[in-house]
Every structure is written in C-alpha cells, then in structure tokens.
Design a protein around this nucleic acid. Structure first.
Lengths: 144, 144
DNA sequence: AGAATTCCTATAGCAGCTATAGAGTCAAGC
DNA sequence: GCTTGACTCTATAGCTGCTATAGGAATTCT
C-alpha cells in the first residue's frame, strides 16, 4: 500500500500540515519519496499516526507521546514506565479540574456582586476586579 | 509617587518583562520617561496593573481584559456588557471542566487495561492506544 | 494542451509570556 | 574620578501545537 500525504490525512482525520509537522518533530518516521519528491506512506504510517492522534485526543503532550513511542520500540522491556506516565497524566488532569473548579467559585463570587443594569462606575464586578483583597488567595494553577 | 518598573513589578507580583509586554499590547498606558529613558510609574499604574493581574488570575484572556478596561473608561454607560462578559467566561470554564472530566474517564478506562509489570509488547495501555475503536468517541474540547 | 488538484519548502502567526544579547543609566564604595 | 553592581533599555527568539500563507513544482483530469 503506497499512499500520499493527502490520503494519509483522510484516513486519520489529521491535517496534511500537521502530518508534516509531526515528521519535523520526529514523531512520525520519514517516509520514502516518489520520483517527484512526494512523501509515500505505508500501513505502518497509518497505524503510527493513529497512535499519535489517539494520544492527542487524550490531551497528551507531544513530549509524552514521543516517550511512549520510544517505549513501544522496546517490546521486551517492562511496561512500568508506561503505567507511570499515564498515572502522572491523570493526576495532571485532576489537578487542572480542581484548579478550574476553584476558579469557577471565584468567578461566581464576583458575579454575585452585580445584578447588571447599573452605570459602569457602580458595577460591582468592576469594583471587585479593582479591589485586590482576594488577589493572592485564588491563584490558578498554570493552564494545561 | 514616582517608581520605576522594578518597583512596580515588586508591588504587583508581576514580572518586569510582563509589564513591558502589557504596555506593548496596549493594556497598560505608556508611562512618562526619566531623563535616562527609564519608565516612570504612578499610583494609577499600580491600580491599573493590579486590575489586569486580578483578571488574569481569573484566567481571562488579554482580549477580555482589554474590553473590560475599555468599558471601565465609560463610567456612565450601563454595565450589562460587563455582566455578559463574566457570564460567558464562567460558561467557558464550566465547559472546560466538563471536557476534562470526560477526558479523565477515558484515561481511567485506559489505565484499567494494564496492571504494570508486563513486557511492553503485552502492555494493555499501549494496546489500547494503538487500537482505534474508541477514537472518535471522546474528542476533547479545544483547550482553554 | 491547459486547468485543476495535490504536493513541496520555507516562513510567519496565534497566546501569553519567558529568556537572551548587548548596551545604557545610576548610586555607592574606594 | 573610577569601578562595581544593580537596574534598565530595545530587539529578538523561544515555548506548545498547530494553522496560514507564499511561491513554486508534480500530477491528474478533461
């Protein structure tokens, strides 16, 4: 099976530019080239790219995916590292959720300060944002 | 009160480079300059920057903050727009939380496929990532 | 043969900073 | 008066994970 980049994109739901980007980043092995310098892919590339897309749909970083791919290339090694990576990723997601829930509480508290339909100079929300009393209490964890 | 950028940074917990960045982005008004071309700030800048930092700690984008600042400059106008902006922001946070909770479910399901301590070629997690059966079910909403 | 489509490389842009280079300013100590 | 050090200046590049654009070459359709 010899397909070009457009067909690979169609089969994986991945944009053409993104495929080239993964190649540049070393996530996808360099394919053979046709006489006219077009990339020629095979089944193994489809599978490889699907793996990457699956990981991305789980919000893994390209660094994490790179590591998983490297591990996958050592079939005899123990898979503890894979488990550890996933555990760490799950913890990160949990932390992000907690940070966002805290954030939401702060936003709701701020929201209660104004019922709307006031002149801006009396708006409770803008006053709450200007007031810095709660400034350091609710620091948000760094986004993803 | 005439302070330089380092002192402003200290008082607001904001990095010097970030202050200059906000100025370049039009969020912070250009301050006066000293003879040696140093930025000279006053009380109003401290307050202004605290407002920005407070908004950022609530995860607002610089675009949202720019809009809020512009509204703040029209004290007589009705504050409905401020309320609307905050409501929209809260909804966004809620959606992000839900997306992350879904994501967590997918990750936990994947995690269950392996107990660790296997050779990598038998790792249930890597197999789950290679298998694309659940690929399009759990698409994650675009991050923040 | 000519037009439409696909492909190529290289570069810049998005958000919200952070880091670096190379130079200038200013106050204190010797 | 001169050096040291802390601070400041501008300009530029880097981070993540793409996306968009320009300008060209290859292929495919009619």
């Amino acid at each position: 099976m010899n397909i070009r980049i457009g067909e690979l994109a169609r089969r994986t739901g991945c944009e053409v530019v993104t495929i080239r980007y993964y190649e540049k980043e070393g996530l996808l092995p360099r394919p053979a080239r046709s006489g006219g310098n077009f990339r020629i892919y095979g089944d193994e590339h489809v599978e490889h790219l699907q793996f990457i897309r699956h990981c991305r749909s789980l919000d893994m970083t390209l660094g994490e995916i790179r590591l998983l791919l490297r591990l996958r290339d050592r079939p005899a090694q123990d898979c503890g590292e894979v488990n550890a990576l996933l555990d760490a990723h799950i913890r990160q997601v949990e932390m992000r959720v907690e940070a966002l829930l805290q954030l939401k509480q702060h936003l709701l508290a701020l929201r209660e300060k104004c019922s709307g339909a006031r002149p801006i100079k009396a708006c409770g929300i803008l006053q709450g944002l200007t007031d810095c009393s709660c400034h350091l209490i609710g620091q948000v964890a760094s986004p993803d």
